[in-house]
């Protein structure tokens, strides 16, 4: 009990550390006594490591997730759920969809997301692969390119630095990424998407015109501040920007994730619809 109390106090102490991700000027690293930012041989911040997106808690994976992250409040399993990556983050503006597109997003929400592409074991796309919290991602940094491996759906990104996008891109789930450093911030430009993924929340579809700009700023040993701007003139009224934090998980290794092994959910959905079970909601 005492240990949990200490954890709660520590968590309160940590909370403000994660907030500047949403308020600090872009590219400004927040000084922290928690540990210096490791540097690569070229002097750039070294992002190499295994990380957890969508979290703001320090510590090992089990410390950060066993009692709290994976499990609601930990002390009360029936308490309201913590936010999922399918939820709109609390206190943030609604996604700026054009009216016709917002209607389509709402239809998915009302159907409780049974049309989620990942339910068919399709790749999550971006920024969803980065911000989801249940599965780790591994960053491997070299002076010329950065590789990110995602356990969820076993997808990967190869991000050449100071390079141009190829001019013959085939539309893809994870898009084509190129990066460069702006001071201590890694900026990644992504285009070449297909239109088969969701962005950040149930039903948040997009077109092949999607253009994503990511900014990764490692503010101390344990934390990357992540800012992503999504532009898609076919469905959005203006650029949509979200901030999140990505936390270092030392000692964690990526596991195999073979989604097609035993994916029963689409069959469940089909049976529910066939049997006329009402699970939809109206907004």
């Amino acid at each position: 009990m005492r240990g949990v109390l200490v954890a709660a106090i520590v968590a309160m102490t940590w909370w403000p550390v994660s907030v500047p991700a949403q308020t600090a000027p872009r590219g400004v690293a927040k000084a922290s006594a928690k540990g210096a930012v490791p540097r690569a041989s070229d002097g750039k911040p070294d992002l190499t490591g295994v990380w957890q997106g969508g979290s703001n808690q320090r510590g090992s994976w089990e410390e950060a997730n066993a009692g709290v992250g994976v499990g609601g409040t930990g002390s009360n399993p029936s308490a309201p759920a913590t936010l999922s990556s399918n939820d709109r983050p609390t206190g943030r503006e609604p996604a700026p969809y054009q009216p016709w597109a917002a209607k389509k997003v709402l239809e998915s929400f009302n159907k409780r997301g049974i049309d989620d592409p990942t339910a068919l074991c399709l790749p999550p796309g971006l920024p969803r692969a980065v911000t989801l919290g249940l599965f780790p991602q591994q960053i491997i940094q070299t002076p010329r390119q950065i590789v990110i491996l995602y356990e969820y759906m076993n997808v990967f990104r190869v991000i050449p630095l100071n390079a141009k996008h190829p001019d013959d891109l085939l539309p893809s789930y994870m898009g084509d990424s190129v990066g460069h450093w702006e001071g201590d911030t890694l900026v990644v430009d992504v285009i070449g998407f297909n239109d088969k993924t969701w962005l950040a929340g149930t039903g948040t579809f997009h077109s092949e015109a999607l253009h994503i700009t990511e900014r990764y700023t490692r503010v101390d040993k344990d934390q990357i501040n992540y800012e992503v701007t999504m532009e898609d003139p076919n469905v959005l009224t203006k650029p949509w920007t979200l901030q999140s934090t990505i936390m270092l998980r030392e000692g964690t290794r990526l596991e195999e994730y073979v989604c097609a092994e035993n994916n029963l959910d689409p069959g469940y959905y089909e049976k529910l619809l066939k049997d006329g079970v009402n699970f939809s909601r109206q907004h």
Binding site: S55, T73, P89, R112
Partner: peptide
């Protein structure tokens, strides 16, 4: 803990099933 909103991802729709 209410302030420690940790985005998770559930692959499937809880509310449908």
């Amino acid at each position: 803990l209410c302030f420690l909103a940790i985005p998770l991802l559930a692959h499937h729709s809880f509310g449908a099933e």
